[in-house]
Every structure is written in structure tokens, then in C-alpha cells.
Amino acid sequence: MKRRLLLVHIVALLAVILSSCSAKPERAESTVFAMDTLMYLEVYGDEAQATVAQAVERLYFLDGLLSAVNEDSEVSKINKSAGGFVDVPDEILEQLNAAQEVSRRSGGAFDISVLPLVTLWGFGTENAHVPSDEEIEAARRYVDYRNIELSGSSVKLAEGMSITLGAIAKGYASQTLAELFEGRGISSALVSLGGNVQVVGSKPDGSKWRIALQDPVNAGETAGVLELSDMAAVTSGGYERYFEQEGKIYHHILDPKTGRPSESGLLSVTIVCENGMTADALSTALFLLGEDGAIEYWRNYGGFEALLITDDGRMLVTEGLRGSFTQSGDAYTLEYVYGNGGA
């Protein structure tokens, strides 16, 4: 008996040694600048190199299609045609439909028609400044998602309106890449599009991907780690893109209701869900809704998990993230949030 056990052990050990030496999957990575951010791709498996090349091509294609800055983009065409219907490609239609749903559900907290306000404030340009109340009111008149009309594969904005897909396009891109990878039989990949992270499968060694959550107050610190597979994690926060005027900081997430940077009491919102596009739109929507509105949205609609960091030092984690989230340090007081049926 003992002898058989020993033999089994030898065989098992040999198997482990052999597999760790030989079965390393092909690995490919790429870093690209597109959609006004830094993008990082990492792919494992057969034809990893070719897959990454295809993915990068896809990213540049989407960048050209979706940019609100590029005059020739499809989004610019929609904006220039405000007042009349214009045919849009599927890539945009999908985002418009998803955006409109989040807008309705959030009561207009999320609104892709904020472009007149974004342009007015000039975020990310040398022209960034605090506009006058009159200017804000004038721009706000053109901000209302209900005046975006979708019919079949065409869209019409009311006269004077303009849209930006900035709060959803990167999530759409990561979702597109995840589907491209799955279609090519890749079972392990990671995409990071400027803070939008999406993973396909687990790591090649079978363990889950470890995604650090950036501390919104000390941007060089980590507030916690998410362990995920086949999932997207997207964070919205005001702490990365902002400008200072007369000692006051103005961050880039504009509240369509006030026409000013959101003051919802949240420092960052992280959404974890299977679809990267949904995660992207929801992170902005819940950031704007604030703590109560965000939790209510989660309880009403579900389908995702959320992690909110408040400006009074709390970290609110929805119950579905129990087991996949580990806090780092003690900068925030961790509280779990339960659904309607929960404790």
C-alpha cells in the first residue's frame, strides 16, 4: 500500500515539474495611446501576437470612429447634423442605446449630451477655466438626453445639441476586445484602457487577475485589491483630470443638472460587472448620483457590483464583492451594502 502511495507521489511530482517547464503559453503585450488615454493589452495563448495586433488595429479604428474631437469621426457627424436624422454604424448605435438606458434609469444624472458644458469648461485643454453663471446656463439649455431621438439605425439630436461618448467609449472598446479575444479562442487576457480594466478568463496559472484599486486621496497608494476573472472593473473619480483656479480644484466629471463639477460626496466609484461598456457608463452615473442614489440604483437594477469611496472616509462595498475584494491599509472604514432582501 505504502509503495503504491509513493509511486503516485512520484508521478504527480513529475507531472507538476514537466508542466511547469513546458506548457508556458505564448504571451504578447502592447501599449498604445488612443481615445485620449494610455492603453495596455496583455494576451496569452496560441497566436497571442497576431491577436494583439488585431486588437490594436481595432482600437485605432474605434478611436477614429468615436472621437468627439476629430472632425471626421462618426460622432462629429452626428453633432454636425443636429436637427436632422443621421445614419450611424452599429458600433455607435450600441453605445447610444446603452447610454440612453442608463440616462433614463439615473433620471438624467448620466447624460451623453453634456458636450457643450465640457467644451465650455475646457477640461484637458490650455483653455480650462471656470465659466460665468450665464455661460453655464446658456450651455445647459442644450443638455438633455431626452432630446436624443433614436430610430432604427439613425439618430437625431435637437438643434444646438452635441454628444460625447467619453463616459462609455472606453468601456465599449474593452468589451469589444474581450469579445474579439474570446472569438479567437484566447482564454487569458487583460485590457487596461486608462483605468478601465477588463479581464478574459483567469491568469495562465489559473489564479484570478489581481486589480489594484487606486486610492482617490493618495493617488500613489492602493485602497484595495479586486480578484477577478471574466469581468470588467471601471472606476470614475474626479482626482485625475482637473484644473486649479484661485486655489480651488475643479475636476472633470460635470453634473448635467448644475453644469458644474459634481459635488455628490463621492471621491470614486468602481463598478464590477461582466460587460465593460455597462461598467463604464455606470461608474459615471453612480458617481453623479451620490451615495444614496447610487445604492438605490444598485438595489433597483442590479446586474453589477459597486465600490464607493465617500469624502467622509467610508468605503461602501456591495455584498456581491465579498470574497473578491480585500482592503489595503486602513484609510477608509469598510461597510458592506446589502440588497433589499439582505441583512
Binding site: F33, Y40, S192, G195, R210, L213, Q214, A233, T235, G237
Partner: peptide, 23 residues
């Protein structure tokens, strides 16, 4: 971002990516 320059240190053990408010 404006100049498309990135400085990074080879990956710290145990973390594969970061989600933050850059987007």
C-alpha cells in the same frame, strides 16, 4: 498623456492592473 510619454517600473509582484479615476 499630452506628450504620450509613459515611465513605468516593471510590474510589482501580485498586481496585474490598476483601476482608477483616470478615465
Amino acid at each position: 498623456l499630452p506628450n504620450k510619454v509613459e515611465v513605468r517600473i516593471a510590474r510589482e509582484s501580485g498586481i496585474d492592473a490598476v483601476t482608477g479615476g483616470r478615465s
